[in-house]
């Protein structure tokens, strides 16, 4: 019985960490959307800034991947 409760807590924790990925999704969408609105205002400057777009997306995405990693660790390693 005790083991089952610990198991349950583990899976609840995994589910909670998945929220972190949602936050990363919001962040990535925010970056891409802002890039697009900026690019539509000044299309000539957009081409030079795609590298910055990807760097920003990479930073935002990394945090989501961290939460994914925590979820994996909880699932398989704890």
């Amino acid at each position: 019985m005790e083991g089952d409760i610990a198991e349950m807590g583990k899976y609840i924790g995994v589910g909670l960490t998945a929220i972190g990925m949602g936050g990363a999704a919001i962040g990535v969408g925010n970056i891409a959307g802002n890039f697009l609105s900026g690019a539509l205002r000044n299309p000539s400057a957009a081409a030079g800034q795609t590298a910055m777009l990807f760097i920003g997306i990479a930073f935002a995405e990394a945090l989501g991947i961290f939460s994914f990693l925590v979820a994996l660790l909880l699932m398989f390693a704890v």
Binding site: I65, F66, F68
Partner: peptide
Amino acid sequence: ISHSIRLAGAMMA
């Protein structure tokens, strides 16, 4: 850390 986990995590996921 983020540099390595980003790549491995994205691939793994």
